[in-house]
Design a binder for these strands. Structure first.
Length: 375
RNA sequence: GCGGAAUUGGUGAAGUGGUUAACACGCCGGAUUGUGGCUCCGGUAUGCGUGGGUUCGAUCCCCACAUUUCGCC
């Protein structure tokens, strides 16, 4: 079955949109936040818990699964869904982000990218074709083109030649894409520059993809202003009837600003990473559960949260103790809560789009979340 | 009872006759945006057992006391 996207409604005052995605693993609505499961696991969560937080779709990673356990192992298991015992939709990233996070600039060539395997030091060469072939085998529901994700500090000149190469890579990847059940997305790059984003978007659209990602955002201390420009200057030149996905975006306010600029999908490691480091997202801001003030705070994280952790009445004091003692249950309880918080945020956003009140929603959110901090 | 050794922050400890007493852990904060999972960045002793002395100056030298510890009778 071919996965399908339907645009249901556009918000009256902004570019926000409501849609749904039908896959053979179920249908979900957009805007949606996708929890990250790089190593074929949303860290510390069981698949039942992933379902429990109402995740419409999760994300996994080509590069990491290529290295370990290897795409053939997953292929022999019957694909990634079977392998990880998860029967919901999955999106795979192409390894493009690892070009940014793991490779050195000198190792990036027209042909592909040379990586030094971070597990055992082996030299590995990843190409656009190889990335797509691996994703074909993983049998994810949505695959990403292999792109170069340049740092926010990249110069205009560098970005220009980088987006040209990313477009050539997108063409090469599409040529070898053989999985009929899988959507393939192109990726728009170009930093905060409108002419580069425009060119990148238009050239990528010419190739023709099932959806378009906005990449190169939220890298190395990019300003919020530049990030929102990147959103706007990308979606402006993308077709309305196709999905848009802001890669790596996950701060609550950034999700709202992204939605307002016409983005449908978001993913971010932050809810799980923050959880491991002892932070909880709440309507009234992010809290650091390790702070001494929670030592004897026997209340739940949030009164109006419907996640397992809050509904089961685990207290801040107990979770604090677990985190301080480095017990994995602490990371798990906070991960469940944080992911649920972001998915619940998208539920409220969808409701606001239905009511044409996304700007009011944003204003109220900022008031609650940042309080007097005046963000 | 005799002899030796030790005494530095919450802990383990380094150190010097002369501006801000190393480091680690802990503790207290902060960071974290397509995840290289025990990470990164700050802060944390106005005082070096107590009392005297020597000295321009002592945590560092000397004396006494206290405490701890080891050995011997």
């Amino acid at each position: 079955m071919k996965i399908e996207y339907t645009l249901l409604k556009e918000e009256k005052n902004t570019s926000a949109r409501l849609g749904n995605i039908k896959t053979k693993y179920g249908t979900f609505e957009t805007p949606m936040f996708m929890p990250v499961g790089t190593e074929a696991t949303v860290k510390t969560l069981s698949v039942e818990e992933i379902k429990d937080v109402h995740a419409g779709i999760i994300l996994s990673n080509t590069y990491h699964l290529w290295l370990r356990p290897g795409e053939d192992v997953i292929d022999h298991a019957g694909g990634l869904h079977e392998f990880m015992h998860y029967n919901g939709p999955i999106l795979t990233d192409s390894g493009g982000f690892q070009v940014f996070s793991l490779a050195k600039p000198k190792d990036i060539t027209e042909e592909g990218v040379l990586f030094k395997n971070h597990i055992n030091g082996d030299k590995l060469f990843l190409t656009p074709e190889k990335s797509i072939e691996i994703q074909n085998k993983l049998d994810s529901d949505i695959a990403m083109s292999f792109d170069e994700c340049p740092p926010a500090s990249a110069t205009y000149e560098y970005l220009k030649q980088s987006i040209e190469r990313t477009v050539r890579w997108a063409k090469r990847g599409k040529l070898v894409h053989k999985n009929e059940n899988q959507m393939l997305f192109g990726i728009v790059q170009g930093g905060p520059y409108e002419d580069l984003r425009k060119w990148s978007a238009e050239e990528t659209v010419k190739i023709g993809f099932d959806g378009y990602s906005i990449g190169g955002v939220a890298n190395d201390h990019e300003s919020k202003e530049d990030m929102y420009k990147a959103f706007e200057f990308s979606t402006k030149y993308l077709p309305k009837n196709k999905l848009r996905y802001a890669m790596g975006i996950g701060e609550p306010i950034d999700i709202i600003e992204g939605v307002i600029r016409g983005i449908d999908l978001f993913d971010c490691v932050s809810p799980t990473r923050l959880a491991r480091h002892g932070h909880a997202l709440t309507k009234y801001g992010k809290i650091n559960i390790k702070n001494a003030q929670y030592k004897e705070d026997f209340s739940t994280l949030s009164l109006d949260c419907d996640c397992y952790t809050c509904q089961s009445k685990y207290s801040k004091a107990y979770i604090r103790h677990l985190i301080v003692a480095n017990e994995t249950l602490g990371a798990r309880l906070l991960s469940i809560h944080n992911i649920r918080f972001l998915i619940h945020l998208t539920e409220e956003i969808r409701l606001a789009i239905k009511n044409d009140s996304i700007l009011e929603y944003k204003e109220q959110f900022i008031k609650d979340y940042y309080g007097d901090k005046n963000e």
